[in-house]
Amino acid sequence: MTDSELISGLSSGNPEAGRLLVERFQQQVINVCIGLLHNRFDAEDVAQDVFIEAMRNAHRFRGESKISTWLYRIAVNRSLNYLRNNKRQKLMVEIGSVFGLFEGETIRDSREPATNFNQLEAEELKRILKTAIDSLPENQKVAFTLNKFEELSYNEIAEVMETSLSAVESLIHRAKRNLQKKLKHYFNP
Protein backbone atom coordinates (compact mmCIF):
# COMPACT_ATOMS: atom_id res chain seq x y z
CA MET A 1 0.00 0.00 0.00
CA THR A 2 1.49 3.35 -1.02
CA ASP A 3 1.41 6.46 1.16
CA SER A 4 -1.55 7.91 -0.75
CA GLU A 5 -3.46 4.62 -0.63
CA LEU A 6 -2.76 4.46 3.07
CA ILE A 7 -4.08 7.99 3.59
CA SER A 8 -7.23 7.40 1.55
CA GLY A 9 -7.78 4.17 3.49
CA LEU A 10 -7.41 6.07 6.75
CA SER A 11 -9.73 8.85 5.57
CA SER A 12 -12.45 6.33 4.80
CA GLY A 13 -11.99 4.64 8.16
CA ASN A 14 -10.57 1.38 6.86
CA PRO A 15 -9.27 -0.48 9.95
CA GLU A 16 -6.68 -2.28 7.84
CA ALA A 17 -5.15 1.06 6.88
CA GLY A 18 -5.03 2.00 10.56
CA ARG A 19 -3.31 -1.25 11.42
CA LEU A 20 -0.82 -0.79 8.61
CA LEU A 21 -0.03 2.79 9.64
CA VAL A 22 0.75 1.65 13.16
CA GLU A 23 2.81 -1.31 11.97
CA ARG A 24 4.81 0.80 9.55
CA PHE A 25 5.54 3.79 11.76
CA GLN A 26 5.27 2.45 15.29
CA GLN A 27 8.99 2.42 16.05
CA GLN A 28 9.66 5.83 14.58
CA VAL A 29 6.84 7.46 16.54
CA ILE A 30 7.61 5.73 19.83
CA ASN A 31 11.30 6.44 19.49
CA VAL A 32 10.89 10.13 18.88
CA CYS A 33 8.63 10.25 21.95
CA ILE A 34 11.22 8.31 23.96
CA GLY A 35 13.89 10.71 22.71
CA LEU A 36 11.97 13.72 23.99
CA LEU A 37 10.33 12.27 27.09
CA HIS A 38 13.00 9.76 28.24
CA ASN A 39 10.34 7.59 29.76
CA ARG A 40 9.10 4.45 28.09
CA PHE A 41 5.68 4.43 29.69
CA ASP A 42 4.94 8.10 28.93
CA ALA A 43 6.34 7.71 25.41
CA GLU A 44 4.02 4.83 24.62
CA ASP A 45 1.06 6.74 25.99
CA VAL A 46 1.87 9.78 23.86
CA ALA A 47 2.61 7.62 20.81
CA GLN A 48 -0.87 6.10 21.08
CA ASP A 49 -2.33 9.61 21.05
CA VAL A 50 -0.20 10.43 18.02
CA PHE A 51 -1.76 7.58 16.05
CA ILE A 52 -5.26 8.41 17.27
CA GLU A 53 -4.79 12.00 16.09
CA ALA A 54 -3.38 10.78 12.78
CA MET A 55 -6.36 8.49 12.20
CA ARG A 56 -8.82 11.21 13.12
CA ASN A 57 -7.18 13.81 10.90
CA ALA A 58 -6.04 11.69 7.97
CA HIS A 59 -8.50 13.54 5.71
CA ARG A 60 -6.57 16.75 6.40
CA PHE A 61 -3.25 15.28 5.31
CA ARG A 62 -2.49 17.02 2.03
CA GLY A 63 0.28 14.71 0.92
CA GLU A 64 2.82 17.53 0.56
CA SER A 65 5.21 15.73 2.89
CA LYS A 66 5.92 12.11 3.68
CA ILE A 67 3.62 10.38 6.16
CA SER A 68 6.60 9.90 8.45
CA THR A 69 7.26 13.66 8.48
CA TRP A 70 3.64 14.33 9.33
CA LEU A 71 3.72 11.73 12.13
CA TYR A 72 7.01 13.10 13.47
CA ARG A 73 5.42 16.54 13.62
CA ILE A 74 2.44 15.26 15.60
CA ALA A 75 4.77 13.24 17.84
CA VAL A 76 7.00 16.25 18.56
CA ASN A 77 4.05 18.52 19.30
CA ARG A 78 2.35 15.97 21.51
CA SER A 79 5.56 15.18 23.38
CA LEU A 80 6.29 18.86 23.98
CA ASN A 81 2.71 19.41 25.17
CA TYR A 82 3.07 16.43 27.44
CA LEU A 83 6.26 17.85 28.90
CA ARG A 84 4.66 21.26 29.37
CA ASN A 85 1.69 19.75 31.09
CA ASN A 86 3.69 17.39 33.21
CA LYS A 87 4.49 19.49 36.20
CA ARG A 88 6.68 16.90 37.83
CA GLN A 89 9.02 16.63 34.87
CA LYS A 90 8.93 20.35 34.29
CA LEU A 91 9.89 20.95 37.87
CA MET A 92 12.78 18.51 37.60
CA VAL A 93 14.09 20.27 34.50
CA GLU A 94 13.69 23.67 36.15
CA ILE A 95 15.49 22.51 39.26
CA GLY A 96 18.22 21.09 37.05
CA SER A 97 18.67 24.33 35.17
CA VAL A 98 18.44 26.55 38.25
CA PHE A 99 21.17 24.68 40.07
CA GLY A 100 23.38 24.19 37.07
CA LEU A 101 23.04 21.04 35.15
CA PHE A 102 24.27 18.29 37.39
CA GLU A 103 24.21 19.54 40.93
CA GLY A 104 23.96 16.87 43.57
CA GLU A 105 25.41 13.43 43.56
CA THR A 106 26.49 13.55 39.94
CA ILE A 107 28.78 16.44 40.68
CA ARG A 108 30.19 14.73 43.72
CA ASP A 109 30.82 11.61 41.67
CA SER A 110 32.36 13.37 38.73
CA ARG A 111 34.45 15.76 40.78
CA GLU A 112 36.01 13.07 42.84
CA PRO A 113 39.60 12.51 41.85
CA ALA A 114 38.40 9.96 39.39
CA THR A 115 41.19 9.30 37.03
CA ASN A 116 39.31 7.26 34.57
CA PHE A 117 36.09 6.49 32.86
CA ASN A 118 35.55 3.15 34.58
CA GLN A 119 34.69 4.72 37.89
CA LEU A 120 31.50 6.12 36.46
CA GLU A 121 28.88 3.61 35.64
CA ALA A 122 27.59 3.60 32.09
CA GLU A 123 24.15 4.21 33.55
CA GLU A 124 25.37 7.37 35.20
CA LEU A 125 26.92 8.66 31.98
CA LYS A 126 23.61 8.06 30.28
CA ARG A 127 21.80 10.00 32.98
CA ILE A 128 24.20 12.91 32.61
CA LEU A 129 23.71 13.04 28.85
CA LYS A 130 19.95 12.74 29.22
CA THR A 131 19.87 15.64 31.67
CA ALA A 132 22.08 17.71 29.40
CA ILE A 133 19.79 17.14 26.42
CA ASP A 134 16.69 17.82 28.51
CA SER A 135 18.11 21.14 29.69
CA LEU A 136 18.53 22.43 26.14
CA PRO A 137 16.02 25.01 24.92
CA GLU A 138 13.00 23.24 23.45
CA ASN A 139 13.74 23.83 19.76
CA GLN A 140 17.39 22.85 20.09
CA LYS A 141 16.38 19.70 21.91
CA VAL A 142 13.89 18.74 19.20
CA ALA A 143 16.29 19.44 16.34
CA PHE A 144 19.16 17.64 18.04
CA THR A 145 17.04 14.60 18.94
CA LEU A 146 15.60 14.26 15.44
CA ASN A 147 19.04 14.56 13.92
CA LYS A 148 21.04 12.44 16.32
CA PHE A 149 18.59 9.73 17.33
CA GLU A 150 16.16 9.60 14.42
CA GLU A 151 18.93 10.35 11.95
CA LEU A 152 16.75 12.78 9.99
CA SER A 153 18.39 15.11 7.50
CA TYR A 154 18.35 18.84 8.18
CA ASN A 155 15.78 19.22 5.40
CA GLU A 156 13.45 16.68 6.98
CA ILE A 157 13.87 18.33 10.38
CA ALA A 158 12.97 21.68 8.82
CA GLU A 159 9.78 20.10 7.46
CA VAL A 160 8.90 18.48 10.77
CA MET A 161 9.52 21.69 12.70
CA GLU A 162 7.96 23.82 9.96
CA THR A 163 10.96 26.10 9.83
CA SER A 164 13.79 26.95 7.43
CA LEU A 165 16.87 24.91 6.72
CA SER A 166 19.13 27.65 8.03
CA ALA A 167 17.13 27.80 11.26
CA VAL A 168 17.67 24.06 11.72
CA GLU A 169 21.39 24.40 11.05
CA SER A 170 21.58 27.14 13.63
CA LEU A 171 19.55 25.17 16.19
CA ILE A 172 21.70 22.07 15.88
CA HIS A 173 24.89 24.09 15.96
CA ARG A 174 23.81 25.81 19.16
CA ALA A 175 22.63 22.52 20.63
CA LYS A 176 26.06 20.96 20.10
CA ARG A 177 27.81 23.97 21.56
CA ASN A 178 25.54 23.95 24.61
CA LEU A 179 26.00 20.23 25.10
CA GLN A 180 29.75 20.59 24.85
CA LYS A 181 29.69 23.28 27.57
CA LYS A 182 27.40 21.23 29.78
CA LEU A 183 29.23 17.96 29.35
CA LYS A 184 32.88 19.00 29.43
CA HIS A 185 33.11 19.21 33.22
CA TYR A 186 31.34 15.94 33.75
CA PHE A 187 32.86 13.89 31.02
CA ASN A 188 36.31 15.23 31.75
CA PRO A 189 36.55 15.72 35.53
Binding site: E23, Q26, Q27, I30, N31, I34, G35, H38, R40, N116, F117, L120, A122, E123, L125, K126, I128, L129, K130, K148, F149, L183, K184, F187, N188
Partner: peptide, 21 residues
Protein backbone atom coordinates in the same frame (compact mmCIF):
# COMPACT_ATOMS: atom_id res chain seq x y z
CA UNK B 1 38.17 10.97 27.83
CA UNK B 2 35.25 13.10 26.64
CA UNK B 3 35.04 11.04 23.46
CA UNK B 4 34.95 7.72 25.36
CA UNK B 5 32.37 8.91 27.85
CA UNK B 6 30.16 10.58 25.27
CA UNK B 7 30.23 7.46 23.13
CA UNK B 8 29.30 5.28 26.09
CA UNK B 9 26.48 7.62 27.18
CA UNK B 10 25.07 7.86 23.66
CA UNK B 11 25.19 4.10 23.24
CA UNK B 12 23.35 3.59 26.54
CA UNK B 13 20.76 6.23 25.66
CA UNK B 14 20.19 4.68 22.25
CA UNK B 15 19.56 1.39 24.08
CA UNK B 16 16.29 2.85 25.40
CA UNK B 17 14.88 2.96 21.90
CA UNK B 18 12.34 0.44 20.69
CA UNK B 19 13.85 -1.70 17.98
CA UNK B 20 11.06 -4.17 17.30
CA UNK B 21 7.35 -3.78 16.68
Amino acid sequence: RVAERYSSALYELAGERQLTN
